[in-house]
Computed example of a mutant assay.
Amino acid sequence: MFWKNWSSDRIGVGLAILAAFGFSFKAILIKLAYTAPGAAPVGPVTLLSLRMLLSLPAFVWLGITSSRAAPPLTRRDWGMLVVLGLLGYYGASLFDFLGLQYVSAGLERLILFTYPTLTILIGVFFMGKRLERREIAALLLSYVGIGLAFVHDLEFSGDMQKVIVGSLLVFGSSVTYSLYLSGSGPMISRLGSTRFTALVMIVSTLAAAFHSLVSQPLSAYDLPASIYGYVIAIVVFSTVLPMFMQSASIRRIGIARSVLIGTLGPVLTIFFGWWILGEPMSLAQAAGTAMVLFGVFMVSRK
């Protein structure tokens, strides 16, 4: 029995590490798609809609299998799914894809990682919760760390306007995702995490596809094979597989440990940004990363 539990624990940790690896590589693949040599520039709306549409079959299948023998959805359930779908994997992803045109993959990942602290602030301002001293310290650490990473990008980019615009867009992504998380708790309790995630992803995909259809011609999808290769890699290795692995990890080791292991993500993104994209590294960036990760650790632990 001890061996069985120990083996399950190791599998859970391994799955959490692989999920962090997959999610961290998303920004790298998006940047590669934006700068693919010999290809016409691909826009963020096109890239997002392709990512969602190619992921759709997996989530339709997941939605069907998880809805068997489940109670029917009420009108209020559908309303909440639409709102959360627009906030979550459509709205947050759109801001993220837009921001990655202007900032480094490392800064993008660090700003996105402020969502635990933003979720706390949403609870304070809109749900009547009180800040603890530990949470105040975590907030200060996280945002000073973001400031250091911002200065790093500004120093090596030399274009203040681009870095500011990109940072604000990615921060908008983090805010939107935090709102999604704040509203998803009751729905997950009612529908279950698998069914809820599948239905929210379907709503998000429809929103992304509609946005693409009304904002650009179909010729926007006339892209070289290299771009579609990056999109397929984003779908398989940075969307579908990490989501399944993270879910399986949470079932084995719990959400707290899974989230803490996920703090590997920004470190991996910065490393791959330096190794693959040639993004510079600096002491300020390293210090900022450490502060953000420690801040997330402080608000994630019991």
Rank of each mutant, 00 (worst) to 15 (best):
S300C: 11
V200H: 04
G288R: 04
G123E: 05
G14H: 10
P217D: 02
S7V: 14
F271W: 15
S173V: 06
T289K: 07
D9V: 13
S55I: 02
M80V: 11
A256D: 04
T194Y: 02
T194S: 10
V124M: 04
S8C: 03
L199E: 00
Q161S: 12
L141M: 15
E155V: 14
F2K: 15
A137R: 04
G192T: 08
L169I: 07
E132Y: 04
L121C: 06
Q246D: 11
M281H: 05
V175R: 05
K31I: 09
S8G: 11
S238P: 01
Y180C: 00
A286H: 02
L50S: 08
V151C: 03
L18Y: 06
L223P: 01
S258L: 05
S204R: 00
T176H: 03
S300G: 15
S7F: 15
Q285I: 13
L84S: 03
G88A: 07
I11E: 06
R257W: 11
H211N: 04
G14V: 12
S184G: 10
P41R: 12
L293F: 07
G273V: 09
T117Q: 14
R76E: 15
L100V: 01
A138P: 09
A248H: 08
G183Q: 08
E155R: 14
S247D: 11
I188L: 02
S258N: 14
F272T: 02
Y221R: 05
F59I: 00
S204L: 07
S247R: 15
T114Q: 15
T74M: 09
A69E: 13
L98G: 03
G145E: 05
S247N: 14
L112Y: 01
G12R: 01
P72I: 04
K4W: 10
T65Q: 15
R134G: 12
L73N: 05
A248C: 04
F125R: 00
R75H: 13
I234N: 03
M1Y: 12
S178P: 13
V165A: 10
L218W: 12
L277W: 00
I136R: 01
L131S: 06
L54F: 15
V214L: 09
S282E: 13
I30G: 05
G229R: 09
S173F: 08
W275T: 11
F272N: 03
V170S: 04
Q161W: 08
A40L: 14
P242M: 06
M201Y: 02
V82N: 09
L199P: 09
L260D: 06
L181W: 00
S24N: 01
A284D: 09
A284N: 11
